[in-house]
Design a protein around this nucleic acid. Structure first.
Lengths: 399, 399
DNA sequence: GAAAATAATTTAGACTCTAAATATAGGTCC
DNA sequence: GGACCTATATTTAGAGTCTAAATTATTTTC
C-alpha cells in the first residue's frame, strides 16, 4: 500500500518535501548549522530536523561536519550540517553579438572559472556560433576543474526578448535567429538544462544579488549601450510582459537618441556642427576623432562643449529614468552596460533633473559590477533554478 | 499528543489545508459537483474528496445538494456538493473625490445591492466623509438584504497610491489625508476587514474579471479623466512598486496635457485660439461653451476643428500607451475612466499611431463596464482576499 | 426478485509530524 | 578514575493525513 510518491498525488510526503526545502534553504544561506540552530530557524522538532538532514546527506545536498569545538564546551556535542556547494556547478553564459563569456560557479555562486571567446556574426553559419558558445562553456569548466556532467543548470543571456517559456521572440535581427536554438542545442550536446533569458533581466538579477541593488525588491537596471534595455524587478520578481518584450527600450532610443558610445559621438558631432563658428569643433578635434572616450575625457578636463554634450546626455537618460520611476515606482535605478564606466560623470546631472520630471524619483546609482555582470546574472538565474528544482534533481556521482 | 494545529508548526494537517483549498476552489469555480467529478478535477481519492467536502460543509463553506436526476440513471446516486455563495457577502467601495459608491455581492461576485452618496470634500471634517462612506456601505447592505455582520471583506478604492501594506502614501492632496484612516475606521465601526487599493488597480481587476481583459494575464488599464492613472497587471499580478505609486501617471499629464473633460475643453480652446482667423472658434461656440461633450458631438457632426482636436488627443493617448507597451509589453490596454464613454471615437486614431511609436504595440480596447467599474474591482479585490483567507475565516452564523 | 451498474463507506497501511521519555557524549569536580 | 552535570541525540508513542483495496449501499433494468 505504497503512497504515490511520484504522479500528481498528494499525501504526507509533500510535507517532507516542504520541510526539506526549507531546511535546505537555511543550510544554503548560512554556513554550517547545528541541529539546534535549524530547530530555531525552521520551527521543526529536533527529531525532524535531523531526519531531514540525514535525508539531504543521503541525497548528496548536504554533508555532516565535525562538531566545531570553540571555547569551553558543555554537554553532548551537537551534530552540524552544511550545504554542499560542491554538489555540482552552474554555468552563466553571456552571449553577446561578437563575444561569448562563460562563468562557472559552485552552488553558492562563488566563481570557479571563466572563459570567453569571439563569436562569428553576420553571414556565418549558425553552427559556428554554437561551436564558439559551447567552447567557451567547456573552457570555463576546464578552468574550474569541473566536468560537463556536473553542470546542474545553465543560465544564458541573449540580447533579445525572451518570453516566460524561455523562447526568443520571433522577428528579431538576423543573428538572433541563432539564439532561438541555443537552449535545445546545448541540451542536445551536453544534456544541460538551459535557461534562456534577456540580457537586461540578467543585469537586474546580478545587481540585486551582488551589485548596487542588493536586497531590494523593486529595482530597474538600465543596460545602456548601443542598445537600450531595462531589467525590471517588482516585488522581487522579474517582469517579462506578454511576449517577453517588457523593458525592451530599443524604440525609445529612436525617440530620445542613443546613449551608447556611438550615440554620444554622434551627439557631440551634432553639437560641433551647431557651434559651427567655434574653433574647429569639439575640443579642437576633427570630427572623425570624436569618440565617446574623447568626449568624456574632454569634459573631465573642463572642455565646455564636451560638458554640454554630457549634460544633454544626462538629460536624455533622466527622461528615461523618469518614465521608469513614474510607471513602476522602483526604489532604485541602476545604470549598467557600456555606459557604466563613465556614467558616474552623468550622475549629478541625472539626479538633478529627475525631481523635475517625476513625482516619484527613484534613487540612481551606477553599476559597479563591471564586464562580468551579465554572466554573473546568468549564474544567479541558474542558481535560482537549481534551488527550485533541487529536490527533484538526481545528483551526479560526486566529483 | 496533539499536533499543533495552530502556531507555525507544520505537520499532516497542512496537507488537509491544501486539499481543502483546492476542493473549495473547484466548488467555487464550477456549479455543484459530484464527488466523482471532484475526484477527476483534484486528483484526490473519492474517500478523501468526500471527507474534505464534509469538512467544508461543517465549516459553512459548502453544502450538500440533492443528487440531480437528469435522464436515465443507473447505479447509486452520487453525492453532490456546491459552494455556498451565500455564506457571507463582500463590499466594494469606490471612494471618489465627491462621491462614494458601495456595491454588495455574494461570494461568487454576483451583485446583491448597491448605493451611493455624495462626499463632502474640502474643509469638512474627516468624520463627515467617513460617515458618508459608512452610510453608503450600510445602505447597499440594506438593499442587498444583508447585515453588517455578514461582511467577510471590504475592498476600497481611493485615488491615491497605496503600498503593499495597504497604506496610503503620504504627501497626497488634502482630502486624501482622510483616506489614510478609512480602513482602520471601518474596522473600528463595523469590524470589517478592509483592503485599501488604488483606484486604477481596481479598474484593472475589474476589466480582467468581467471586462475587456477577461482571462488575460498581462494588461494595463488606463483610468483617464482629470487624473491619469494606470492599473498594471503582469503575469496575473498587480504591480505596485516600492511605495505603491506604480502607474501614477499624474505627472505625465503635466508633460503631455490632460485627457479628461477639462483637458479636452482646454485643448479645444487653444486650438480655437490658434485658428484665430476662423469663424469665431470651434463650431461657432463661444469659448465658455466649449465643453468636452460639445467637442465630441461636434466631431461626430464632422466639424473639422473638433476632429483636429480629437486627433491631437488621440495622439497624446497613443504616446502614453506606447510607453506602456514598450516598457511592460502588455497584451491589451483598456481605456477606462471618464473618457471611456467617448473613447471609441479616439480608438482609430490611437490604433493608427501606435505602431509608429513602439515596436510592441498592445491591443487597445475601450472599457465597457461603465460607472460601476471601480466598485466592481473593489468587489473582486475583496473576493480574492476571502478566497485566500477562506479556511482561516470563522463564518458568522448563517443568515 | 436477481443482476448489473455505479458510487459510498470501511479497512489496512504508509508516511509525516510533534511531544515526551530515555539515552549519550562530552566536560567538571573531587 | 568515577560521580555528576549539561546539552544534545535518539527512541517511542500518538495523531493526522493520504492512497488503495475490499466491502457495502442504492438504484435501475430485466
Amino acid at each position: 500500500m505504497q503512497q504515490g510518491t511520484d504522479s500528481g498525488t498528494v499525501g504526507p510526503h509533500v510535507v517532507r518535501f516542504v520541510t526539506a526545502r526549507s531546511v535546505l534553504a537555511e543550510l544554503r544561506r548560512g554556513g554550517p548549522l547545528t541541529a539546534g540552530e535549524l530547530v530555531e530557524l525552521t520551527g521543526l522538532t529536533r527529531a525532524t530536523a535531523i531526519a531531514v538532514c540525514e535525508d539531504l546527506v543521503r541525497r548528496g545536498w548536504a554533508e555532516e561536519h565535525e562538531p566545531e569545538r570553540t571555547g569551553p564546551q558543555r554537554g553532548r556535542p551537537p551534530r552540524t550540517f552544511g550545504f554542499r556547494a560542491d554538489a555540482g556547478v552552474v554555468v552563466g553564459l553571456d552571449i553577446g553579438a561578437h563575444k561569448a563569456t562563460a562563468l562557472v560557479a559552485d552552488l553558492r555562486g562563488d566563481p570557479l572559472g571563466s572563459a570567453s571567446g569571439a563569436l562569428p556574426s553576420g553571414p556565418h553559419p549558425v553552427e559556428a556560433r554554437l561551436d564558439a558558445v559551447s567552447a567557451a562553456a567547456l573552457a570555463a569548466l576546464r578552468a574550474a576543474g569541473s566536468a560537463p556532467e556536473r553542470v546542474l543548470a545553465v543560465g544564458a543571456g541573449v540580447a533579445a526578448p525572451v518570453d516566460r517559456d524561455g523562447r526568443v521572440a520571433e522577428g528579431s535581427q538576423f543573428w538572433e535567429m541563432f539564439d532561438v536554438g541555443v537552449a535545445d542545442a546545448l541540451f542536445a550536446r551536453h544534456g544541460w538544462h538551459v535557461l534562456l533569458e534577456n540580457d537586461a533581466n540578467l543585469a537586474a538579477l546580478a545587481e540585486q544579488w551582488r551589485g548596487a541593488a542588493q536586497g531590494l525588491d523593486d529595482v530597474a537596471v538600465l543596460l545602456a549601450g548601443e542598445r537600450l534595455g531595462a531589467g525590471l524587478i517588482e516585488s522581487g520578481r522579474l517582469l517579462r510582459g506578454r511576449y517577453g518584450a517588457a523593458g525592451e527600450l530599443a524604440f525609445l532610443r529612436l525617440v530620445d537618441g542613443a546613449v551608447g558610445p556611438h550615440g554620444i559621438a554622434q551627439l557631440a558631432r551634432e553639437w560641433g556642427a551647431e557651434a559651427a563658428g567655434g574653433p574647429g569643433g569639439l575640443a579642437g578635434l576633427a570630427p572623425r576623432d570624436v569618440t565617446a572616450e574623447a568626449v568624456f575625457s574632454a569634459a573631465d578636463d573642463g572642455d565646455p562643449a564636451a560638458r554640454a554634450v554630457l549634460g544633454r546626455l544626462a538629460e536624455r537618460m533622466a527622461r528615461v529614468i523618469a518614465v521608469l520611476s513614474t510607471l513602476l515606482n522602483p526604489e532604485l535605478v541602476v545604470l549598467g552596460g557600456a555606459v557604466a564606466p563613465s556614467a558616474a560623470q552623468l550622475l549629478p546631472g541625472i539626479r538633478g533633473a529627475l525631481p523635475g520630471l517625476t513625482d516619484t524619483p527613484a534613487r540612481v546609482e551606477v553599476s559597479g559590477l563591471g564586464g562580468d555582470a551579465l554572466a554573473l546574472g546568468a549564474v544567479r538565474r541558474a542558481l535560482d533554478d537549481v534551488a527550485e528544482r533541487a529536490l527533484e534533481i538526481e545528483l551526479p556521482a560526486s566529483r
